[in-house]
Amino acid sequence: MISFDFEYFKPATVEEAVRAFWQAEARGKAPIYYGGGTEIITMARLDQLRPGAVIDIKGLPECNDMRFRGEQLAIGAARTLTDVEETPLFPLLADTVRDVADHTNRNKITVGGNLCGRFFYREVLLPFLLVDSLVVLAGPKGMRTVPVHQVLNGAPSLARGELLVQVLSDRRYFGLPYVTVKKTKMERIDYPLVRIAALRTEQGIRMAFSGVSDIPFRSLRIEAILNDATLSLAERIDRVIATWPVPILNDIIGSAAYRAFVLRNTLRDTMTALERRSL
């Protein structure tokens, strides 16, 4: 049971949603945009989050888009992970979401909720980082489109009150060889000890990570090491782990040493699989 009240809005347009946010904000309601609500309900029940207003974005047409416009695939923020999985227009994304949470929860978790959520795994982000997606954001000054790297790589840095409307991805990446792998401590549906999504392009292998640290990220410096043909694979992996850019998590799911061990093996398997595959 959620022990406090909040106002519920279900706007019909993006403009109404943003206006509702700022009107509630002006009244001190600490509003929050609401997609599938799984994380918000969970945290509110535990009193870890106390919004005074929630703005449900599932009625916004742009947030329900999932179609190609020319060479770009637009995926609305309110689309569920099940939608993405069952209509695999972006195969790497579909295969990645397939083992986020469990099937019933994927019926409710939305793309936008996972990308902007407070649970730091945000695994849906990784494929978008690999294909240099763009995100469409709405705020009081209108819409803006920016690279996903700019606002979501690492900790989310959307401006207060900005609504993630859509993610745009270039289809030219969709046919490239990829690997997406999630290592958990026990159950497959658990949070990842190590999650890697990787893509092989003509310029080299791209890789993004979740679970290893308390932010999901893609690092060009790590990719430069992994693509350094002057080093053996073992040397490249040693160097990546030795210079990991953020602290490796050390928690109940796994110690830092165990995570590094799993990371090492998963990196080796991922690199080996991708280096075998032709473009």
């Binding site: 599938g36 609500g37 449900d56 099940t82 099937h103 019933t104 019926n107 409710k108």
Partner: peptide, 13 residues
């Protein structure tokens, strides 16, 4: 038509 965990859905939804 969709299975949902009713603990993670607001009634108003």
């Amino acid at each position: 038509g969709t299975a949902v965990k009713s603990c993670l859905m607001l009634a108003i939804e």
